[in-house]
């Protein structure tokens, strides 16, 4: 008997980089996105975010504001200077919305504590999977 994975048309597994220094939040976001069939690369500090975005060319970056090393403003400034990474869409997940400077690649801010459905809807909107 065939199962879903056998019978569904294969999805292109898009990559999402999840950046949060809180292990529990990072785990939850990683789990939720993997359950949506995204490939997830999770990191916990600002420098690792930049390395991951450069190395993985993700379809989306889910970015906490307060990260060790570099905060979201610094990460975004560096990403936006590089044409290779300046177009990667970003969702900032943070309680510090007022500290965030304007960056063209930021598609939205999801306030913490976040609503699960709001997070999933925002990711689906920015990063629709293709069959």
């Amino acid at each position: 008997m065939a199962h879903e994975a056998d019978s569904n048309p294969p999805f292109e597994r898009l990559t999402v980089v999840v950046a949060d220094d809180d292990a529990e939040v990072r785990d939850l976001e990683t789990f939720l996105l993997e359950s949506e069939e995204y490939r997830v690369v999770s990191v916990s500090d600002g420098d690792a975010v930049i390395r991951a975005v450069r190395g993985e060319a993700p379809a989306l970056l889910l970015l906490d504001f307060m990260l060790p090393g570099k905060d979201a403003n610094e990460v975004l400034a560096e990403l936006s200077r590089d044409p290779e990474t300046a177009r990667v869409p970003v969702l900032v997940v943070s309680a510090y919305r007022e500290l965030l400077r304007p960056f063209a690649q930021v598609r939205g801010v999801i306030p913490k504590p976040f609503d699960i459905m709001e997070l999933l809807d925002a990711v689906r909107r920015e990063c629709p999977r293709r069959a």
């Binding site: 008997m1 065939a2 199962h3 879903e4 994975a5 019978s7 569904n8 999805f11 292990a23 785990d27 993997e34 949506e36 069939e37 689906r124 629709p128 999977r129 069959a131």
Partner: peptide, 22 residues
Amino acid sequence: GSRALSIRIDVRIGDEPVRPRP
């Protein structure tokens, strides 16, 4: 340090069409 396990459970009854996700 830490280790993680992932488990995937899929169920099916008859030939019901699986909803196209997402």
